[in-house]
Nucleic acid binder design. Structure first.
Length: 442
RNA sequence: GCGGCUGUAGCUCAGUGGUAGAGCACUCGGUUGUGGUCCGAGCUGUCGCGGGUUCAAACCCCGUCAGCCGCCCCA
């Protein structure tokens, strides 16, 4: 009896996801698509470090963000010279720092996209991770940012999401000035509890929101009625502005909706109950829901306008508007609902059979030729039984198997693994034939 | 951070006091240069961890850790 090796049983860490190859292939296709749409609108890529100084991350006073801090295992506990570092919890704060720091070298309006992982020390569950990918676009300008960019955000996102196979979705748009203007008119000063709870309207219903606003925020029934009436109003033109701020919000929202009139009705909706819990948004706000997965109520893509992005870092006024796809959330939820189905386990189009050790050079040569022609080609690694080599192609779902000449006077042959057909092939001209039948060979 | 539920093979789970099982997956085989199906054989477990009760614990009790779900918050 041999001694049993001690092994550490591998396990995944909750809230940190990783995928099998067949899923990762799709994830990369999605990311490629997102990148290409972003770039088609002229957004430029920025990547910032995973860590920022804690002072930067906390500059906005977002202490409830559950930031992961970074320390060295060998750190000297008495040495506090090192700046304390933390993993970034979003990409907006790093963008603010970046924009302020490189202010003189950037061209404004600065349009950037950023796809990186972010970290939040929260309790994970479906659609909420501790490490997740966000795909952000933001436009930053100096002093004044044209409203037309507020309409560009949903336009870009519509194109991104429409190109991913995620079913129907709806981008809801509102403008915080409308609700905040009403609160001002009603004489309500402490707005955060109100906006946070109005935000839950669709999720928990009007009665529950009424109870919370009455009991916790101490509002009067009259005030609550006015707020709910506004939030539930589905007809923008019937809203009466009670002050300048409200009117401004209505005008802005109408402009944005007008700019988006080319998009399908179900995809874009003005919804005055959307206010976003975050209090740094000052105008337009966005949320996106998956209509085909109604049981998942959280937003998969949100954002908004902020009047002053980098005020904590530079003495200039930098207004911006941005939106962020919760990529990991979206991907996980769709996968959970069976809408992300992995097929290929590797990118190869063709598996090269290795008939014998003597033929290895010819096989390699053939593979090189095919790669030059643009195919992705994997060579089988050992001259094993054909049964094994074919079974390998089958398991990896490689669609074509290439048989090089087994003897000098023979021809190349290619087998279509889907149909089972095998035909002679010309190395310089072969291409995957159009399959007219979609059935698998029995 | 708060609450509920759950931890048994790589996966999905059965087993509720008498020293561990199924299906799937995986490996090999069913002769010469051809995969999937079928048939046969095989491999895989500190029964999450620690303690207690008992002649005896995967099973009962306590603790602990982890996971899932809900809340909070948010992508």
């Amino acid at each position: 009896m041999s001694e049993k090796k001690k092994i550490y049983k591998p396990k995944s860490i909750s809230g940190f996801s990783e995928w099998l190859p067949e899923i990762r292939i799709i994830e990369q296709q999605w990311l490629d698509h997102i990148r290409s749409v972003f770039e088609s609108y002229g957004y430029t890529s920025v990547e910032t470090p995973a860590v920022e100084e804690l002072d930067v991350l906390l500059a906005k006073g977002e202490t409830d963000k559950e930031i992961y801090t970074l320390t060295r295992l060998q750190a000297d506990p008495d040495d506090d010279k090192d700046a304390r570092l933390g993993l970034h919890f979003d990409q907006t704060v790093p963008l603010a720092r970046y924009t302020a720091q490189h202010f003189n070298e950037l061209v404004f309006p600065f349009k950037r996209y950023q796809t990186q992982k972010v970290w939040r020390g929260e309790r994970p569950q479906l659609g909420r991770s501790r490490e997740f990918m966000q795909c952000d676009i933001d436009v930053i300008n100096v002093d004044h940012l044209p409203l037309h960019f507020d309409a560009e955000m949903p336009a870009v996102i519509y194109e991104v999401l429409d190109g991913l196979n995620i079913g129907k979705f709806q981008i809801s748009i509102s403008n915080r000035k409308i609700l905040l203007g009403l609160l001002e008119a009603l004489g309500i000063e402490d707005t955060i509890p109100v906006t946070r709870n109005v935000d839950k309207l669709e999720k928990i219903g009007a009665e529950a929101v009424t109870t919370i606003l009455k009991d916790e925020a101490g509002l009067l029934q009259e005030q609550i009625n006015a707020i709910l009436q506004l939030a539930q109003n589905t007809d923008l033109s019937s809203v009466n502005a009670q002050n300048e701020q409200m009117q401004e919000g209505l005008d802005e929202l109408n402009f944005v909706m007008d700019q988006l009139s080319h998009l399908p009705d179900h995809a874009i909706k003005a919804d005055l109950s959307i206010v976003r819990g975050l209090d740094y948004y000052t105008g337009t706000v966005y949320e996106t829901k998956l209509l085909d997965i109604p049981e998942f109520t959280s937003s998969i893509c949100s954002g908004g306008r902020y009047d002053d992005l980098a005020g904590s870092f530079i003495n200039r006024k930098l207004p911006g508007v941005g939106i962020s796809i919760g990529f990991t959330r979206l991907f996980e939820v769709l996968q959970h609902n069976g809408l992300v189905q992995g097929e290929r386990k590797c990118p190869a189009d063709i598996l090269m059979i290795l008939p014998s050790e003597e033929r290895r050079a010819i096989v390699a040569d053939t593979a090189r030729t095919l790669r030059k022609r643009g195919f992705k080609v994997e060579q089988y690694h050992a001259p094993q039984k054909l049964q094994k080599q074919l079974s390998y192609a089958e398991k990896k779902k490689i669609p074509y198997v290439w048989f090089p000449p087994f003897e000098d006077d023979q021809q190349h042959e290619v087998k279509n693994m889907n149909s089972g057909e095998q035909q002679k092939a010309e190395l310089s001209t072969w291409s995957p034939q159009e399959d007219t039948s979609h059935e698998n060979a029995a």
